[in-house]
């Protein structure tokens, strides 16, 4: 049985949080990832960039609509995630257009900021 843990939190900037809180958070995330890894339960984890870096994709009647910004329709709730590794935003958008959910909902394309490799946080590039 596989679960995706979705972390929801207030989107503060690093300036708002301060260097100390940022460092504490980073350490907590490191040890959390290492703990999950040691327990043999970690498939992959990712911290995303802020939602203002999101791009949304909808396909209606075969026509793709690509827009800047996260979707604002509050009736739509997060129903699944997929992590892909591609060259750039255009490639990611092409995959988003092919997602079934693009037909009936909205696919949000958000760049990852940092993710785990073998339980160690690694910057996305």
């Amino acid at each position: 049985m596989r679960y995706t843990l979705l972390f929801h939190y207030h989107e503060a900037t690093s300036e708002e949080l301060g260097a100390e809180a940022m460092e504490q958070g980073r350490q907590a995330m490191s040890s959390y990832a290492a703990t999950l890894q040691a327990a043999g339960v970690l498939v992959g984890a990712e911290v995303l960039h802020r939602s203002d870096l999101s791009t949304t994709v909808q396909v209606r009647d075969g026509v793709a609509q690509v827009q800047d910004g996260p979707f604002a329709d509050t009736k739509e709730q997060l129903g699944g995630t997929a992590v892909i590794d591609v060259a750039d935003l255009d490639a990611a958008i092409d995959w988003a257009k092919q997602a079934p959910a693009a037909q009936w909902g909205t696919v949000e394309v958000r760049p990852g900021a940092t993710y785990t490799v073998e339980g160690v946080w690694t910057p996305n590039k």
Binding site: H49, A64, V66, L89
Partner: peptide
Amino acid sequence: RAKRRIKQARIPFAVPDRRAMPS
């Protein structure tokens, strides 16, 4: 804000192919 988005969301410096040109 726009420049941050170009860099961090990695908007490619490329001319789209013919298929994507209409949009």
